[in-house]
Amino acid sequence: MRAVVFAYHNVGARGLRTLLAGGMRVELVVTHPDDPGETIWFDSVAAVAAEHGIPVALVDQAVDDALLERIARLAPDYIFSFYFRRMLPASLLAAARIAALNMHGSLLPQYRGRVPVNWAVLHGEAETGATLHVMEAKPDAGDIVAQQAVPILPDDTAKDVFDKVTVAAEIALWGVLPRLLRGEVPRRSNNLAQGSYFGGRKPEDGRIDWRQPAQAIYNLMRAVAPPYPGAFFDLNGRRFIVARARLARPEVAALLPASASAGLHLAQEQILAKGNDGGVIHILELWAADHPGQPLSAQHLSELAGHQP
């Protein structure tokens, strides 16, 4: 069986390796040029393709006519999309002789759309996973081909969960690959009425609202923790990023008096935050936005802020 693979990021790299290990013949890999303005903390699909001598085409904004014609001439049995960041046009999907399949980072039909892992953590889910599904013009709407669940532990960050989802994607693909190589595509309905759809997130969406309950604030901190842009707050004209936190243990939470208001506090050299429900978050690592990666002590935070929060 012959395939064209559209891929990027860790799931793209692992998906490509899985196809090759299982015996799929990959004729062409299409990936994105890395954005110099983005922190590249993930694997290179182009490097994996180069290791295996597979031709690579780069797509930034959209698949152009020349690439469409090139793929049509290849007449692949399958087209795979593994975390490729652009929608593939219907004319391209039709070029696959058997099926065009996409790997999505959730348990469809839940969390269709963009950045599904971050949304799942933000909403406090206890489980997510990876779903291989048939591609249609509507995003994440086609029949489900394979699926693998993973747990979300209470203190997992989005990066922790994304690493699990990468493995889940590999397991799901590996399990169904023998059937795909025989030209069989198992399908079950992807009932969109039972699911949910979410759009992309912007760095500004990481702004902390101390009026929220502590669990909701903590979920935001986990959902956008580095290497994502991070949950942040502004204090005396300075911006600070929460790099690492957890819900405070009882003995730590007890450092704050019951009368403490919702918001940021310093207590016995600890940086604490109180939600509007009385719950307390222990901020374990805090950065100044203009010096990312450099942890601040409670004393340093007080000096930068100009007063004791």
Rank of each mutant, 00 (worst) to 15 (best):
residue 131 T to R: 01
residue 78 Y to F: 11
residue 152 I to T: 00
residue 92 L to M: 01
residue 260 A to G: 04
residue 204 E to W: 10
residue 96 A to R: 00
residue 144 I to N: 03
residue 26 V to D: 03
residue 119 W to T: 08
residue 49 A to I: 01
residue 149 A to E: 02
residue 220 L to N: 05
residue 138 K to W: 13
residue 283 I to N: 02
residue 190 N to E: 08
residue 83 Y to Q: 14
residue 163 D to R: 10
residue 206 G to W: 09
residue 295 P to L: 08
residue 259 S to C: 11
residue 245 A to E: 01
residue 246 R to G: 07
residue 84 F to D: 01
residue 306 G to S: 06
residue 140 D to H: 06
residue 221 M to E: 08
residue 163 D to T: 11
residue 306 G to N: 09
residue 159 K to W: 15
residue 76 P to K: 08
residue 87 M to W: 10
residue 57 A to Q: 12
residue 164 K to A: 00
residue 230 G to I: 01
residue 110 Q to D: 14
residue 91 S to T: 14
residue 92 L to I: 03
residue 51 E to R: 12
residue 177 L to E: 10
residue 285 E to V: 14
residue 204 E to P: 13
residue 6 F to W: 05
residue 13 A to G: 07
residue 191 N to C: 13
residue 58 L to K: 05
residue 258 A to R: 15
residue 129 G to Y: 03
residue 293 G to E: 07
residue 199 G to N: 09
residue 276 N to V: 10
residue 223 A to E: 00
residue 251 E to I: 14
residue 124 G to Y: 03
residue 125 E to C: 01
residue 252 V to G: 01
residue 160 D to S: 05
residue 92 L to P: 00
residue 294 Q to S: 12
residue 34 D to G: 15
residue 106 S to L: 05
residue 100 A to Y: 06
residue 248 A to W: 05
residue 190 N to S: 00
residue 214 A to P: 00
residue 304 L to E: 02
residue 291 H to R: 15
residue 115 V to M: 08
residue 24 M to W: 08
residue 194 Q to H: 15
residue 104 H to N: 00
residue 114 R to S: 14
residue 255 L to A: 05
residue 53 G to K: 02
residue 201 R to T: 15
residue 25 R to C: 15
residue 151 P to F: 03
residue 42 F to G: 09
residue 138 K to T: 12
residue 199 G to Y: 01
residue 197 Y to R: 13
residue 294 Q to G: 06
residue 101 L to C: 06
residue 240 F to E: 05
residue 196 S to R: 02
residue 204 E to D: 14
residue 243 A to Y: 07
residue 79 I to Q: 04
residue 256 L to G: 04
residue 116 P to E: 04
residue 52 H to P: 05
residue 253 A to M: 01
residue 38 E to D: 14
residue 155 D to P: 00
